[in-house]
């Protein structure tokens, strides 16, 4: 069973292409981290899953149902923490949760849910006076109502302090153990790293990497960086470097040429520079962290 299946979804807002033939599959029962910098299209993807926006091309399925045609049936079984939500009128925290439970035909205890997300103290206050972090927790409580099969959380840690972010991850784990699939987006790697089984990295509307977190970490270990200071940068050097086995990317940074590559490719890279007619004045080499891998995926020239 697949919880989420996005097939070739393109979304254009006027001239802006937010998603470009996005392909994405999330399996039943996994915790999937959806990573990418701001503006990469994470929220647009989630908006398509929830039928908040309609794709220009392609289609998406959630829990085996068409995201556009069966949106209500989908949302009956999905807990949603959307981006840019607002509180419901002048309702108190408890009224919010009761409202969500009623809408989902759930039988949860509102106070237990509020307790779980840590806003039980403010249950009788109007949510309009909540801080950003409290509103975020309240919305999570609403998402948990009715024991959803799938949780879709858009930047769930927004506005939370480090302690709150940890509690959020705890809840994600608990829900997953209960049997729920969790799909959440973030632009912060460590939050994803800590709980996810699999990670997808989105960049400019395209999925540039999907992998299990361990494999990604392994790749981060093997792919390092070679920073070369050359006297000149001959024409054709970048292409020659790019063609080498094990080279993932080449870019200029300041006066240096930075080559992202596996360790065995470092020697050939230096030799290529000499062969192209450049004198290598300085060589620095480093191992990339997962963070760097993420940054390279999302910012570097590929």
């Amino acid at each position: 069973m697949t919880a989420i299946d996005v097939r070739g979804v393109t979304k254009e807002f006027g001239d802006v292409r937010a998603l470009q033939r996005l392909e994405l599959t999330v399996d039943d029962g996994e915790i999937f981290g959806f990573l990418g910098p701001n503006g990469a299209g994470k929220s647009t993807t989630i908006d398509v899953l929830l039928d908040f926006v309609r794709p220009t091309a392609g289609e998406a399925q959630v829990l085996g149902m068409d995201a556009q045609r069966r949106s209500e049936a989908i949302r009956e079984r999905v807990g949603v923490l959307p981006d840019g939500f607002g509180v419901l009128g002048r309702m108190t925290g408890r009224q919010h949760v009761e409202f969500a439970i009623e809408a989902k035909n759930g039988d949860d205890d509102p106070d237990a849910l509020l307790e779980r997300v840590g806003v039980a103290d403010a249950a009788d206050r109007r949510a309009i006076g909540y801080s950003k972090g409290m509103a975020q927790r309240l919305m999570l409580a609403m998402a948990l109502a009715g024991e959803p099969d799938l949780l879709i959380l858009d930047e769930p840690s927004t506005g939370l302090d480090p302690g709150g972010a940890r509690e959020m991850r705890e809840i994600v784990r608990e829900e997953n153990e209960r049997g729920a699939t969790v799909f959440f987006s973030s632009h912060i790697l460590e939050q994803v790293e800590a709980v996810c089984d699999r990670v997808g990295i989105l960049r400019a509307g395209e999925l540039v990497a999907v992998d299990e977190i361990d494999d990604l970490r392994e790749r981060a270990g093997t792919v390092g960086q070679l920073r070369l200071t050359l006297d000149t940068v001959p024409e054709g050097l970048f292409d020659a470097l790019q063609d080498l086995d094990g080279v993932e990317g080449v870019k200029r940074e300041g006066g240096d040429v930075v080559v992202a590559c596996a360790d065995p490719a470092k020697g050939p890279a230096i030799r290529t520079c000499y062969e192209a007619g450049a004198a290598v004045e300085n060589v620095r080499t480093s191992q990339a962290s997962l963070e760097e891998l993420f940054i390279r995926y999302t910012e570097g020239d590929r």
Partner: peptide, 17 residues
């Protein structure tokens, strides 16, 4: 008004059409 305040987003995250 619900659209501008984001309340609509919260409502449509629940199973309302």
């Amino acid at each position: 008004e619900k659209d501008e305040s984001g309340e609509l987003t919260a409502l449509l995250g629940l199973p309302f059409s």
